[in-house]
Structures are given as C-alpha cells and as structure tokens.
Simulated assay, not measured.
Amino acid sequence: MPVIHVPLSGGPAAVAYDRTGTGPGVVLVHGTGATRAQWLPLTDAVADRFTVVAPDYSGSGDTTDHGGPLTLTDLADEVLAAADHAGLDRFHLVGHSLGAAIATHLAAHRPERVRSLVLHAGWVHTDTRLRAEFTHWLDLLRTDAAHGTAHFARMLPLAAFGPRYWARTDTAANEELVRALATTLAPGVARQTEVDLSVDLRPLLGRVTAPTLVLASAHDRIIGADQQRALLTGIRDSRYQEIDAGHGAPGEDPAGFAALIAGFLDERRAAEAAADAPGVPVGPGVAARA
C-alpha cells in the first residue's frame, strides 16, 4: 500500500492509496464516510486496460492526518498527490458524491491533467436544502458519539438506496446492513460532512474542460435533479446518464454502476486513440458533446 505525505491547510497528511492494473490512468475518489474499497468492483472491471489509483482522503481508511478541519482544496490536493506519486501525468477522474465535488474542483484547477471526468451524485452548491441535510447528519453523528447509538447508520439506507434495494431486502437483512455500517463508517465522516457543507463550485464550472459524464441516480433522495442540471449547464463538454438506483448506487448496484463508468472510460480511450492515429483529422467536430 503506497503512502504519500501531503501538506494540508491544518497540517500534514499521510495519504494511502491503491495502484492496480496497467494502461492509461484512472483516479477514483470515494464519497463521504466511505473508503477506497468503494471502488473495488470498478477496479476489477477496468484494471486489465487502465492503471487505477484509488486514494483514501483524510478521515477515511488508512490515511492519517492532523485531525482538524478540512477543506475541499485539501482533499483535492491529496487526490492529485496520490496521482503524482503513482506516476500518472494525465488521467481520467471519477468521483462519487463528495468525491464528485473533489473531482470537479481538481478538474477546474488542473485541467491539463484530466483526460475525462465522471461525476456521480455530484452537486454544484450546498443550498438551503442540502445544508439542512448535512446539518441533520452532523446532529446524528454527534448523538451517536455521545450515546453509543447508531442513528446515522440507520438513516443511511433510507437516504441512499432506491426502490430496487427495498424490493429485494427484508427487515432482518436491513438490520444486518445497519449493524455493518455502524462499525465500518469512516472515522472522519463528521469532518468530511463539514466539507460537504462548504461546497460551492459555481465559480469553477466554466474552467472544467474535460469531457464529462454527469451520472445521476434516478432515485437520489440526497442530491436533487436541479444540481445535476446545474452541472450540465455549467460544464461545457458534458453529457447526462442515469442509473436506476439511489444515491448509494456503488453499493446498491455495484455491477451496473461499474459497467456504466467502464463504458464511458472505454469510449474516451477509443476517442483519444482515434484522435492520435496518423491521418485522422482532428477538428471542432471530434469528440463532440454526445
């Protein structure tokens, strides 16, 4: 497990990441409360043709840091540092939820590094409704920490999963999931939720130049359709796709989620190869918005 030391606004971090496979680089950025293990199904699906780098950012997994407040810039710096340490010059970038916000921030500030961008369950700005959502999360997390309860873990399936999950589960299975979530949530989930509260990408969207897939969940109870429309409007070279799942699509439908992203990555790889091939004209119509 490689580790890279990264200076942050509050002090240093030792960022752990996985590097798997061979080929063009893909960097994967997990969501709030998750770890790089979130990406194992996608890694398995593409590691035969891509070099996959999946870091734990601060508050998650094997990464350690100063323990204080974090910023979106801090987390983007950690992701870029992992890509640098893994030897990736340019790379495809995939983010889920907070990871999508981190990926958008990175793509806006370092456009020359990002080949393409996949944003699942991302958002542009923490508006009043999202602020209420994340504040509720923090209240639950503080109550759990004070009283040994599992209110946050119990809320997660309700907020994150769509109808297909509820149709195929029962009370016992859902209770088992709640118990598992209570013991596996990242220890820094509250610190990461504070970053969720701070997201405002509105000044940055026009700086994103990478071809972008805005991947929405049809039954997302956390991120509304208005946020997806704002991403599509603000990012010039963007397109839309939907998955029949809730906000937590990586856990609800891991195979389907991985297949959609792998399809986009393969398409971008083929487009780049065609553009680089001798005798292939490159003009305004090449790799245009779908």
Rank of each mutant, 00 (worst) to 15 (best):
L201E: 01
G188I: 02
A190L: 00
T193K: 11
A210P: 00
V189M: 09
L177I: 04
V195N: 01
A167G: 12
A173T: 12
V208A: 02
R179W: 06
V195P: 00
R207M: 10
P211R: 00
W166Q: 05
P187K: 05
T212N: 04
T171R: 15
V195H: 02
R191P: 06
L201W: 08
W166M: 12
L201V: 11
D170Y: 08
E175I: 02
T169K: 01
R179Y: 13
R168V: 14
L197E: 10
Y165T: 06
A190F: 00
R164D: 13
E194Y: 11
G188N: 02
A180S: 12
A186W: 00
L177N: 05
D196Q: 08
T212A: 13
L204F: 12
L197G: 02
L185C: 14
A186S: 10
A180Q: 14
R164W: 05
T183Q: 06
R179N: 15
V195C: 02
V195S: 03
A180M: 12
T193C: 09
A210D: 00
L205C: 05
L201T: 02
L197V: 01
V199T: 08
A182V: 04
D170G: 04
A190T: 06
Q192M: 09
A210L: 14
E194G: 03
V195W: 00
T209L: 13
E175A: 08
T212S: 08
L185N: 11
R202Y: 10
T184L: 13
T193G: 02
T171K: 07
P211C: 10
L204N: 03
W166Y: 13
E194I: 12
L185E: 07
A180T: 15
L177F: 05
L181F: 06
L197M: 06
R164F: 15
A180G: 13
D196N: 15
L197Y: 10
T209D: 10
V199N: 03
E194D: 13
E176F: 13
G188P: 02
A173Q: 14
G206T: 12
